[in-house]
Design a protein around this nucleic acid. Structure first.
Lengths: 166, 166
DNA sequence: CAGGCGACGCAATAATGTTTCGCTCTTGCG
DNA sequence: CGCAAGAGCGAAACATTATTGCGTCGCCTG
């Protein structure tokens, strides 16, 4: 329901839970300026309406031995919808592929992959990705280092935007 | 401490919290097969050691009006360390840039950006990114649709790997 | 084999999560 | 303007969970 607009308290709740998903409801209520029960009701509603998709611990992959991160640009032979879906299904089944986005432009898909080491990735690349049906070309780029990694919504931009249109 | 190896219970804890970061400690303890107090102690330790970087609610950006997602491939004029760092600092300051990774290959950086609409992104692109110091080239690709988006660690791969090396 | 270290589980207490209930404020209509 | 209906809030009560303290067990070490 795009019609179900959020009030400033709801947006604050989302921003706080994005920053710290394990915050207690009491603390959350204190920060957004209401008491605990209505705060919990709002959180439940936001979950049901799909604004909150879930909660996840942010695990350090490198500490667990996944030292390689790679972006793969994939071009397909056929861009028919059935072939696109088939490739997406394959990506969902590959554990080393953590993200798969369909793009416009010369490249059809971009994949974010992780692997324990280079040889693991290369065996995945040559044994799985390059040999998958309908794959025409793959260009890979190793991540040398990460400078910023904050998936989520820039709530400061959202608030600025809303205050303008109001 | 890379020497501080994790036992199967610790890895199970990480996997469960990655899947559901708001799980209660009681439920977590039940799932990993130990009682609540030592389970909580392990979680605290994992947090302190940096295996768990934090907890975040997964917010649906599209529902909040961020309908555009873009990957930007950026090439710089100078790849001197000071210039690389300067660009990374700039990326950290741009709210529309959610991720910034330094790559090998022909492109220096890949940026994942969000924006409320195309014109917002284009004004960022022309007014900020393209005019930033040291930026030589930017190629952007719109995300048509997302097929998979599961940042994190593939714990099934990790377990398979460990059982082999054991 | 005794001592010490580490980790576990149990039990008790503090804190939090969750439901219930009554109140207030807003909205729409006579 | 006044009233009735509905939504949202806060205080209190109850259920669940988090946290601490302590005793026990297994294991390594000297």
């Amino acid at each position: 329901m795009p019609g179900t607009r959020l009030d400033p308290i709801d947006r604050k709740i989302l921003a706080e839970l994005q920053a710290d998903g394990r915050m207690t409801n009491v603390e959350l209520a204190r920060r957004v300026g209401i008491s605990a029960p209505p705060c919990l009701r709002r959180v439940r509603t936001l979950e049901e309406q799909g604004f909150i998709r879930g909660y996840h611990a942010d695990i350090d992959a490198r500490e667990l031995g996944f030292e390689v991160q790679v972006f793969a640009m994939v071009g397909l032979v056929s861009q028919a919808e059935a072939d696109l879906s088939a490739f997406e299904d394959r990506c969902r089944a590959w554990p080393l592929v953590r993200e798969c986005h369909m793009l416009n432009g010369e490249v059809d898909f971009i994949l974010k992959c992780v692997a324990p080491d280079l040889s693991s990735f290369q065996s995945f690349l040559t044994g799985e990705l390059l040999t998958a049906p309908n794959v025409a070309s793959v260009k890979t780029s190793l991540v040398i280092r990460g400078a910023k990694d904050e998936p989520g919504v820039p709530f400061d931009v959202l608030e600025a935007r809303l205050s303008k249109s109001a």
